[in-house]
Every structure is written in structure tokens, then in C-alpha cells.
Amino acid sequence: MTSPDEFPPEPPRLRALRRLVTTLTIVLIAGVIVVVVLLVIRLSRISAPPEFPDHLAAPQGESVRAATMGTGWNAIVTRDDSGVERIHILRPDGTIRQTVEVTVE
């Protein structure tokens, strides 16, 4: 009779399967750690958006509804007292380059 401390030898295929599962577990843990580290690095680089220049203003009688910045131009969406909305494309110095009236259909 065998004692409880004695086990039969491990079959070679079972040993290979155990090693494969252990290796895949280690790879999975390492992959999760890499993804978390990359997310932390990427998210720590996010900076505040640039501030819209103070010297840009809406034409008289119009209020600013939205603003955006491009390369070498700025845009503001305005609404006048009668409810007409316009998009003003501005040069960096604040002068109007183009105006587009927005019509709602």
C-alpha cells in the first residue's frame, strides 16, 4: 500500500500543460501591467487646452456663442439681437477675414 505522501509520477503531457498555463498566466499579468503603465504615462501628458486670445472680440451688437482656434486663424460664432447667427473667421490680429451667415433649415 502507498502512503498519502507518495504520488504517482506526473505524465509528460500534464507537466507540459501545467507549464503552459503558468507561462500564459505570467504573460497575461505582464501584459496588464504594461497596459496600465502606458495608460498612466499617456494620461499624465495631457495638458490644458490653449486659451482663446483676449484681444479677439465679437462685432458690435453680437454676442459670442462659441469659439475655436485653427492654424493661423480663429473663429467665433455670434448671435445678434434679431437671432441671426454668423461665423466670423478671424486673422490672428483679430481682423475679420470672412463671415458666413448660418441659416437653419
Rank of each mutant, 00 (worst) to 15 (best):
G83P: 01
V34C: 07
V32N: 08
D93Y: 07
T78F: 11
T99P: 01
P92F: 11
T99K: 06
E10P: 07
G83L: 13
L17P: 04
E105R: 15
P8L: 15
D54G: 00
D5E: 12
L24N: 01
Q60M: 10
E85V: 03
H55M: 12
P50D: 06
R65C: 08
G83N: 12
E51R: 01
R65V: 12
Q60G: 13
D81R: 15
S63T: 02
A66R: 09
P92C: 09
R97F: 09
L38N: 00
E6K: 14
E10D: 11
I46V: 06
V40L: 07
A30Q: 05
L17G: 03
R79S: 14
T95V: 08
V37D: 03
V35G: 01
L28F: 11
Q60P: 08
T2V: 10
L14R: 14
L43F: 08
R18C: 01
R91A: 12
D81Y: 11
V77I: 06
A58V: 11
L90M: 08
P12L: 09
L20C: 13
L38C: 05
D93K: 06
P11F: 12
V37I: 09
E6I: 13
M1V: 14
A75Y: 13
A58P: 04
V100Y: 03
V77T: 02
R13S: 11
F52V: 05
R86K: 15
P4D: 04
A48H: 05
P49R: 01
T2L: 13
I33P: 00
D80S: 10
A58W: 15
I76Y: 06
V36L: 02
I41P: 08
G31Y: 04
